[in-house]
Nucleic acid binder design. Structure first.
Length: 104
DNA sequence: TACTTGACTTTAG
DNA sequence: TCTAAAGCCAAGT
C-alpha cells in the first residue's frame, strides 16, 4: 500500500461530523512529520466522494486557504451540513476542535 | 532519471 | 513568546 493510499484509508475512517488534522492523519499512517504530503495526497484525491478530504483541517482548526474545493467557504458548507460547528471571529473561520476533533 | 514542489507540523533559537 | 528552518515523501516536470 502506497503512502497516499494509506492517507486515503485513514481519512475514510473519519466519521461524519468529525474532523482530523493533517498531523493527526500523518501520525496514524506512521509518519508524524509527513503532514505536508498528507495535504498533497488529498490534493490529488482520486476518490472524490469517497475520501472526505473536507474533514481534514489545520492543527488550529482553520481551513486550507485558496486550495481546497471552491475555497474554504465550500469546505465550510460541507462540514456544516454534517453538523460541525464553526467559530467565526471575523478574520478566520475555524472548526471547534475541542468538540469535533476525531479521536482515532 | 533527477530535481523541484507542495492543503503542514514540529522543534530549536 | 515569537520567528525561522528542517523534515516528511510522492507526483509532476
Amino acid at each position: 500500500m502506497s503512502f497516499s493510499q494509506r492517507v486515503y484509508a485513514v481519512v475514510k475512517r473519519i466519521p461524519r461530523g468529525k474532523v482530523a488534522t493533517y498531523g493527526q492523519v500523518a501520525a496514524l499512517i506512521g509518519s508524524p512529520r509527513s503532514s505536508r504530503f498528507v495535504g498533497f495526497a488529498l490534493h490529488s484525491n482520486p476518490y472524490q466522494g469517497v475520501v472526505p478530504c473536507h474533514r481534514v483541517v489545520f492543527k488550529d482548526g482553520s481551513l486550507a486557504p485558496g486550495f481546497a474545493f471552491g475555497g474554504p467557504q465550500e469546505q465550510r458548507k460541507l462540514l456544516e451540513a454534517e453538523g460541525v460547528h464553526f467559530l467565526d471571529n471575523g478574520q478566520t473561520v475555524t472548526v471547534d476542535m475541542t468538540q469535533y476533533q476525531w479521536e482515532a
